[in-house]
Simulated assay, not measured.
Amino acid sequence: MGHMEFYKPIIVMIVMQFTYGAVSITTRASLLEGMNPRVFVFYRQAFATLVMAPVAYFSSRSKTTRCSIGWKSFWLIFLASLIGITISQMVFLEGLYLASSSVGSAIFNLVPAITFVAASIIGYEHVNIRSLRTIAKIFGTVVCVTSAAAIALIKGPKLLNTHLPSSNSLLLNSSEFDNIWLLGCLCLFASSCCWSFWLIIQVPVTKSFPDHLSLSAWMCFMATVQSGAFLLITDPHLDAWKITSYFQFGSVLYAAIVGSGISIILQSWIIQKCGPVFSAMFNPLNTVVVTIFASIFLKEQIYVGRQVNLINIKLNFIIWEHML
């Protein structure tokens, strides 16, 4: 039983990486079909709120002790929603479209490095330069950064696939593909930073408001309001808010229920149990899943230079396992 408790967080995180991979692939497919990235974020959070709110409400009613949301909890949740959901997803979808889903998951390998550095500065992560665990984490950080830089800057000969169609991207104002590629990588890097900060913010958030179901519902609701306000500014015409196909609707619904609702609950539970760095260290697995399936189903461009990331995958699982 004790062994099962030890492996339960690991199993959950592995399953979540496959889930995130499916979300990335279906999301980019919707963007390539012409869906507005900001509309996608808004509907994703709105649907997630509609699903999570009733579940959280009836779950809290069955408990003898309920969590009350005070002003401190409210502003912590608002900040976490703004950084880790609204901004992170808006920027991520821009980068996902401009680069690719496989590159998006690869650059997200920076999350353990960014999280480790930030958590060390804040004091959530103890750094002992004489410890093998600390040395492994530092070396893993260097590997993550080097790999992400290689993916962004070193492409090499093209092995596979496609062409970039038009879309509703706010940043697509150049016909020069190399510039678009680099811009997409920068967006994905910014999204990685936001996600890392979200993982760290979860520590005070879960302490202030430990009800994971209600916390997930509140985050989805606040992200809906935030993304809706941004969408009104950038796309004031309601015609731009339309979902034009069943596939787009299905991908939004899947991202909402599984990618936002369920994943936020599980991420909050994992962070409370094992810490933010543990949660971040499983991201390299997502790259393997997305790269394989995106090249098959989306015909994404695969470059020789990007395969440097495979070294990062193998090294990260060896290096970061010292953290367990």
Rank of each mutant, 00 (worst) to 15 (best):
L164E: 02
F40N: 07
L93N: 15
S268C: 02
C194P: 06
A256C: 00
F6R: 15
L298S: 11
V39P: 05
S174W: 02
G156D: 02
Y246T: 08
W241H: 12
I233W: 15
I319T: 08
V15M: 14
Y254D: 00
K8H: 06
S30G: 04
S147A: 15
G140K: 01
T49P: 07
K207E: 05
P284C: 08
V117E: 10
Y246K: 09
H126E: 14
N309A: 14
V12C: 06
L310M: 09
I302G: 12
P284T: 09
P37T: 10
S88N: 14
P276H: 03
F297V: 15
K207N: 00
E94A: 00
L79G: 05
L183G: 11
I14W: 03
A29E: 13
V288R: 00
L231G: 01
I83Q: 04
L82Q: 03
P210D: 13
A150M: 10
S100V: 01
S147W: 04
T49N: 11
Q267P: 01
P236K: 11
A217T: 07
D211C: 04
I292F: 14
L253F: 15
P236W: 11
L182M: 12
G140H: 02
L31G: 06
L50F: 07
K72T: 10
L213E: 07
L183Q: 11
L188C: 11
D178C: 00
L285T: 10
A229M: 14
F221I: 06
M4C: 02
R130Y: 15
W181D: 05
R306W: 15
P210I: 05
S81A: 15
S295N: 12
S208F: 07
R306D: 12
A148E: 04
I257W: 08
I319W: 03
A150R: 01
G140N: 00
S73N: 06
S100W: 07
P276F: 01
F221Q: 04
V225Q: 04
S279V: 04
A280Y: 01
Q307S: 15
I243V: 12
V225D: 03
K158C: 08
I154A: 02
S60P: 07
A294F: 04
I243A: 03
Q89I: 07
S214R: 09
S245M: 00
G184A: 06
E94H: 08
V39Y: 05
Q307F: 15
L171S: 07
T65I: 15
G34S: 00
D235S: 14
Y246H: 11
M35W: 10
T287Y: 14
K299W: 07
Q45N: 13
Q272Y: 01
I11Q: 13
H3I: 14
C67Q: 13
N168Q: 10
F40E: 02
S279L: 10
I154P: 00
Q307H: 06
S174R: 03
V117W: 08
F197C: 10
V127G: 09
S192W: 14
L253C: 09
F18A: 09
F189S: 04
V127Q: 03
S169W: 05
T146G: 14
R28M: 09
Y57G: 01
A56M: 08
T49I: 07
S175N: 12
L98Q: 05
N128L: 01
